[in-house]
Design a binder for these strands. Sequence first.
DNA 1: GGTTAATCGAGACGGTACGTCACGTCTTAGT
DNA 2: ACTAAGACGTGACGTACCGTCTCGATTAACC
Lengths: 175, 175, 175, 175
Amino acid sequence: MAILKAALELTAEHGYAGLTIDGIAARSGTGKQTIYRWWPSKADVLLDAAATKADLFVPIPDEGSFAADLRGFLAASFVLAAKKPLADALRALMAQAQIDPEFRRRFWTAFLQRRRDALQVLLVRAQERGELPVSVESLTDVVFGVIWYRLLTDRPLDDQLADELVTLLSGRTSP
Amino acid sequence: MAILKAALELTAEHGYAGLTIDGIAARSGTGKQTIYRWWPSKADVLLDAAATKADLFVPIPDEGSFAADLRGFLAASFVLAAKKPLADALRALMAQAQIDPEFRRRFWTAFLQRRRDALQVLLVRAQERGELPVSVESLTDVVFGVIWYRLLTDRPLDDQLADELVTLLSGRTSP
Amino acid sequence: MAILKAALELTAEHGYAGLTIDGIAARSGTGKQTIYRWWPSKADVLLDAAATKADLFVPIPDEGSFAADLRGFLAASFVLAAKKPLADALRALMAQAQIDPEFRRRFWTAFLQRRRDALQVLLVRAQERGELPVSVESLTDVVFGVIWYRLLTDRPLDDQLADELVTLLSGRTSP
Amino acid sequence: MAILKAALELTAEHGYAGLTIDGIAARSGTGKQTIYRWWPSKADVLLDAAATKADLFVPIPDEGSFAADLRGFLAASFVLAAKKPLADALRALMAQAQIDPEFRRRFWTAFLQRRRDALQVLLVRAQERGELPVSVESLTDVVFGVIWYRLLTDRPLDDQLADELVTLLSGRTSP
DNA sequence: GGTTAATCGAGACGGTACGTCACGTCTTAGT
DNA sequence: ACTAAGACGTGACGTACCGTCTCGATTAACC
């Protein structure tokens, strides 16, 4: 869809602050009304665009051990977060979620919840094997907490962090 | 200062989206020019207001063990985050930091870095005692990552989370 | 025709400013395309509706004297202009004629010219009898001028005006 | 004022239908808000502009006879109506007055009533001399009725009409 | 103690984007 | 084949705030 493409491009070029409905309409060759007919706000357009891109990368590895599975999940997630345009969009969406409570719910169910579900497949599997030191819920928050905190403070998600997270959560060094 | 008070009140009443420079000026009985003379944006006004409130609560406990120190730090932080008006302001500031790169730097040094420094006093002490499973940097990100992630997704910071964090990071259950 | 009826009703209810093609289509249960197929603009719909109503009342009296004929013509015209919905429509049409030159021509030939022709039958008859103080053209403009001016300034067309017009144009008091 | 100038120019260039607040703002180098701060609608801007131009030409001659006075008044008015840009503006204002009842009142008091007052000075003087065949009110409506009717039907105000009006209203040929 | 200069509140200004309305065209089912 | 229904690109609307700017009125400092 031309509208989603325009939204991503404009965010990349001028930042989320420079993203406007007028701009999306002009760039995509549509009318503003058409955008408002399908999305309640510019953030929702961006959410749609980002969700489409990000969904392709939700892996649910099964490599025998929790440490290996977690390592795989982190690797895929870090690759995703390293894509500048996508990372910029995600940071903007999390920002908008703080400002607009309606959007926060949509962002939660359409994006955050899906990724939590993916991770929790691994975690529940590990829990059943007795490999988890603490609850699934807390571990989910720890993993996504670190990722988002690094993202939001504009600092890279590097291999060292992945290694140390695996060590911390699985009780052993990553393979 | 009447301006900081007005900014906090308006954020509490109408949300950050409803906070405007015009509104702050009207509520505080000042002219807009006066606000611009002292702060570069409405987010900076709020940052000033929030930093003043939050600084009072940065504790650096020293209770003998890393587990106990961490427990104390988390307890104080969770109490802070449970104050609705302050939490709303912090979420708004983190949001603004995503949208405005200039502000991100000011927010980092004026708020985030201070709290990281406080936590790192504990962590370095523990590290020197050989109590840390992974690097200080990663642990800092894990702790603040979880806190911010819960805050930004509008979910409470409860005792269970504190307990499990202590278990996870110190290798033993909290005292 | 349901479309003409809807146009008149909507003008009466919300004024000409509140008359829209969308509204006519919705009220009359037709598609917009159907309206555009038959009329070039909403003003033309209203013109059709008004012309149908007004044409019924164009009388061409012949009562022996110019004064009596004129009195009859004025009485019929004043009755017509006293009908609120019709008067509102006519005022709107004259307004639209000022804004849209194409429509002005259609309004002239489809409405104004017809009523001038009716009056000029009386005037030419009187002229041939030598009863007219000035030209037919000027008298036509005087009669319709007063009527329209009162209509457009939202002031009533009363008996006193009719009497004085007859006095003025026929050189004697009305019968 | 640049805004009034821009409004008149745009009306002359693109017609009243092509006159927009956006256009006036762009041409005059102001913001839209400034226009809305001082005038309630684009018609009021045009009214201000036209009233300023037209007020200069309200003559109240006193040449001894009603016929001569009326002749003078008509001559001045016809000259005014012959100015294309002004005539276009006046026709647009009368049109808008039909569509917007609030504006009708402002147009009446700010323009129409003033010109009626000017004419009525002559008429009252004549009435006191016993020169009037009918009431001042009706004669006022006849004079302005003819002028506006010709204007609104886009037909010229020529000398013949002036002569015949004088003949009709004063009972004698013009000097 | 009276005058001058700085500071303040108030708010008008040129802008940009908003979200809405209606336009006139077009596409799509359904009869 | 024609219709109602309504999505579409377009463009103007009137509003909200932005950040800058000019005003008097009020203080404060200095003569």
